[in-house]
Write a protein that binds this DNA or RNA. Structure first.
Length: 570
RNA sequence: UGCCUCAUUGUGUAACGGUAGCACAAUUGCCUCUGGAGCAAUUUGUCAAGGUUCGAAUCCUUGUGAGGCAACCA
């Protein structure tokens, strides 16, 4: 279970465009031949499966080229950030199996960013603007028409510096002043029309407190952070594509100011490329909406097993290996695709199949009585703990006169290819014996008890004459079984149709019904299940003992995934 | 409408001008003391129209469709 090394991209099959890009750069002798990437979340929420993809890309590309990857808190907007999120971010990324080579806070570079901005002013490349936001909107123009110059665009550097410093000291109210880069008011790219690079925010910053009253914008801060850290390849999602010229503009200014990192005599010039974010069917990944669920108390928290957060998936029982495998399989492209949730679940099953401990459990019980097995007599059943892994050993279960079996395993009138319990049909009670149903007892329309006899000659369920038994049943002893609570979660936001949430009111789709807790009968061994451990309830699905909300007398299990449509929730 | 980007089977992703392949899903068969797993097989695809070329998913042109940008968010 322990992860000592950073996970690598093992597959040699996928040559996506980012990999190609880096290979070409390396071949062209750019930079110093070292690949440095970064994962730059804003600490304002917990990361979800979509971020996990980005983490795998950023760390994976660095690992593939024996490079380095930095983890950086992009905390340039103080209003929603906190250290709690920083800690969770680190925890989740570590859990996913990655180790960063450097950790940084963008806010630790505020001083340097400030110097860069002042130098911009001195060079006539930035100015303080006093237009209101509404006015600015009008001045900026629309994409089809050029914008107009701000009235203060050509103010002197000295005047600008004075005002800029006053912005920092809190002399002005929010929205009254901002620093803009002086670029091109008629550019077809709106981001070039003198973009704002510093704005006044009077909220205290979680690290720098009230030291600053204005903060750099993402478009200004991000390339600086990359450059000063010596990042060579900066990968982000598609929506930043139109920001790239501005990213390059800032890098050019840094070059003019001789601030680019030099390694091995080579100037490191970061570049940005964009890839499509992950969209997963039935799943909504929007920090804003996830936050709403948490704040409105619709879920237990960011780590609720219904949440698509990394923490939620961890608690639900997904493994980091499965998530990494998934990220590897979905590939990287610029096509805005929608990945089928079935692939994620397959990855989880595939991984859990190798490691999960097998246990018998009955979720929807009906009583089965072996009439020729006297009260107090027990049959031993020896079963492997994991057939996929013989080293997991075996355990011995006691089969008694009265058992619980799954209600679905009995049919009053058997259907055509039904090989389980029906009158006259011989089945195997897994590991224990062969059983033939003779009759059943009804209470009204409901069958409440199944009766039959076992074959004493067929020890452990192996018929003496070698006759074929088509059905094998799972069972637990009525007297020895243990009752546990099992939580069956719907997928988060289990919408009728994938990704359809017209008005954004999808949170309403998450009703209390989306989690059902049922009482299940399990083998005695599960009474001491280890929280966080994975179990396959045979023929039902994968379950994980919950480490958070355990009952005092027994563990609570979360359903991780079902086996292939073998079990439909009641 | 201005600029930018994208389009390969149901889904996702390969094929750097030379046989359209892989995985998930689906279907079928085999096997099994998990109707799971495993094994085997099958079905379905280059958005459209032109052009360049011996040869185009790939290059060019036009069109169509989808997405992004017009926060003092990231």
């Amino acid at each position: 279970m322990e992860e000592n090394t950073t996970a690598t991209v093992e597959s040699d099959t996928s040559r996506h465009f980012l990999r190609q890009w880096i290979e070409d750069d390396l071949a062209a002798g750019k930079n110093d031949g070292t690949v440095v990437t970064r994962f730059p979340p804003e600490p304002n929420g917990w990361i979800h499966i979509g971020h996990a993809k980005a983490v795998c890309v950023d760390f994976g590309m660095a690992a593939l080229f024996n490079g380095r990857c930095h983890l950086r808190m992009d905390d340039t907007n103080p209003s929603k950030e906190s250290d709690d999120f920083v800690e969770e971010l680190k925890k989740d990324i570590t859990w996913l199996g990655f180790q960063w080579d450097e950790f940084s806070f963008a806010c630790d570079r505020f001083d340097e960013m400030w110097d860069i901005a002042e130098e911009l002013i001195r060079r006539g490349q930035a100015y303080v603007c006093e237009l209101s936001q509404e006015d600015w909107k009008a001045y900026r123009g629309i994409p089809t028409e050029p914008g107009r110059f701000s009235p203060t665009r050509d103010r002197s550097a000295e005047e600008n510096l004075t005002l800029f410093r006053q912005m920092r000291e809190g002399v002005f109210a929010e929205g009254t002043h901002c620093l803009r880069a002086k670029i091109d008011m008629s550019s077809p790219n709106i981001h070039f029309r003198d973009p704002v690079i510093y704005r006044i925010v009077n909220a205290p910053h979680y690290h720098t407190g009230t030291q600053w009253h204005c903060y750099p914008m993402y478009d200004f801060a991000h390339p600086i952070e990359d450059a000063l850290e010596g990042v060579t390849h900066s990968m982000c999602t598609l929506e930043f594509e139109v920001h790239r010229p501005l990213y390059d503009w800032v890098i050019d200014r840094l070059a003019e100011q001789h601030r680019l990192v030099v390694r091995d005599g080579k100037t490191i010039r970061p570049q940005q490329r964009e890839f499509a974010r992950l969209n997963l069917s039935y799943t909504v990944m929007s920090k804003r909406l996830l936050r709403q669920l948490v704040e409105e108390g619709r879920v237990e928290g960011w780590d609720d097993p219904r949440m698509p957060t990394v923490a939620g998936m961890r608690r639900r029982g997904y493994t980091p290996e499965a998530i990494r495998e998934f990220c590897e399989r979905i590939g990287v492209s610029k096509y805005e695709s929608q990945t089928d949730l079935a692939l994620l679940e397959w990855c989880v099953r595939n991984d859990l199949n190798r490691r999960a401990t097998r246990r018998m459990a009955v979720l929807n019980p009906i009583k089965l009585v072996i009439d020729n097995l006297p009260e107090g007599v027990e049959l031993n059943a020896e079963l492997p703990n994991n057939p996929e892994n013989p080293e997991a050993g075996t355990r011995i279960l006691k089969c008694t006169r009265e058992l619980w079996i799954e209600r679905d395993d009995f049919m009053e009138i058997p259907a055509k290819k039904f090989f389980r319990v029906s009158v006259g049909n011989e089945v195997r009670l897994r590991g224990a014996c062969l059983f033939t149903c003779t009759h059943f007892v009804k209470d009204g329309d409901t069958v409440i008890e199944i009766h039959g006899t076992y074959d004493p000659e067929a020890k452990g369920g192996n018929p003496a004459d070698g006759r074929k038994i088509k059905g094998t049943l799972h069972w637990v002893s009525v007297t020895k079984a243990y009752a546990v609570d099992v939580r069956l979660y719907d997928r988060l936001f289990s919408l009728e149709k994938p990704m359809e949430c017209p008005s954004g009111n999808f949170v309403d789709a998450l009703t209390p019904d989306s989690v059902k807790t049922i009482r299940a009968w399990v083998e005695p061994a599960l009474a001491t299940a280890v929280p966080g451990e994975h179990y396959q309830f045979e023929r039902v699905g994968y379950f994980t003992a919950d480490s958070v909300a355990s009952r005092p007398d027994a563990p609570v299990f979360n359903r991780t995934v079902t086996l292939k449509d073998s079990f439909k929730t009641a």
